[in-house]
Amino acid sequence: MVAVGLWGAMLGSPAIWVLPIAFPLVMAFGGVLGIAAVPIPRVEVGVAVSAIMLGLMVAFALRAPLAVAIALVSAFAIFHGHAHGAELPRGADAIAFSAGFVVATGLLHLCGIGLGLATRWPTGRLAVRFVGAGIAGAGAIFLRAAFSS
């Protein structure tokens, strides 16, 4: 989630605001699939790969056309939404869960955007790229855990 905001900030306008708008919409669709128990194979792998890919995008300051960025982020949003939707306890309060899930996701995006604004300065740009590398590294650890489970 933080990487989405970071990458959006690195890509600049309009990606900086299109990605945080697209992500919750598609994530909700993934959540519905999870709640409806529609199977998506290797969801944990998808989540880990999303962290690796987006982390690397930030780490290497890779740019992509807006359509590609939206498609990439949306694909990953489905995995995230599905993972949360599938793991939801059935007795949970529908609105409270949904609001908490969406607002937390949005705030993580905002954190990423806030950090990403540091790319205006050379030192900040380097720091953001390090954060991206860290996210990719964490994703690799998740990926290993997903394959070993």
């Binding site: 994530m27 909700a28 519905v32 709640i35 939801l88 529908a94 609105i95 869960f97 949904s98």
Partner: peptide
């Protein structure tokens, strides 16, 4: 997103 998820739940 909140409304869609709440409806699904």
């Amino acid at each position: 997103a909140i409304a869609i998820l709440a409806l699904a739940l």
